[in-house]
Design a protein around this nucleic acid. Structure first.
Lengths: 98, 98
DNA sequence: CACCTTGTTGCGCAACTGCGCAAGTGTTGA
DNA sequence: TCAACACTTGCGCAGTTGCGCAACAAGGTG
């Protein structure tokens, strides 16, 4: 269970993309917001405290790393966590980040 | 257990520092190497395939994020993972990184 | 002491990031 | 068809990052 299998360079690039997605306080704030459930872009930008275009860009980073997915309903787009393990990983990081 | 408590801006900056440390393929490679045990800077730079100064800078990023610690023995400095949860988090990320 | 080995630090540069702002896309309703 | 709303995309700029290279620091050895 503690076995660590080496990754290929290509795999590590995908993992690093997840790291980059987690590398910004505002994006982490988005994850915390989405932990409470689905949210629209406007809602998220208000809670995080940034402009809508900026939030859209942050969401694009999270989406391309596969951490969130979106769903359209009329003109509104709702984002949610793509996988519960995303939150698990974030919470695990919180336990040892000094 | 699925409760998500909001973090302060300052806390999120520390968590984001961990994210940044995980945001580079070479640094992830270092973590994989260190999963097999303590390693010197020279050993790591050889395995990762970069120059020693470059490795030293990557290790500084990992160290300032609290992911690794070092120990000096003569002129050689050995690095190791600071906490087993670091590896746990990395492995967890690997499970959902698409 | 001089000299070697092992790491770290400083510097300059190309590449990337986060941001604000303006413009564009797409969906709804009058 | 036109206007309004919700979001995305393009662009430019300041700040950051990763890298190679040279210089420096620290320990060990003769």
């Amino acid at each position: 269970m503690d076995q660590v299998q080496p990754s290929s360079e290509l795999e590590r690039q995908r993992f690093a993309a997840v790291g980059r997605a987690l590398a910004d306080p505002k994006r982490l704030c988005v994850l915390e917001c989405l932990a409470r459930g689905e949210q629209s872009v406007g809602d998220l930008s208000a809670q995080v405290g940034c402009q809508v275009p900026n939030m859209s860009q942050h969401l694009a980073v999270l989406r391309s790393a596969g951490l969130v997915t979106s769903r359209r309903e009329g003109t509104t787009i709702y984002y949610r966590l793509a996988d519960p393990r995303v939150l698990e990983a974030y919470q695990l990081i919180q336990t040892f980040a000094r």
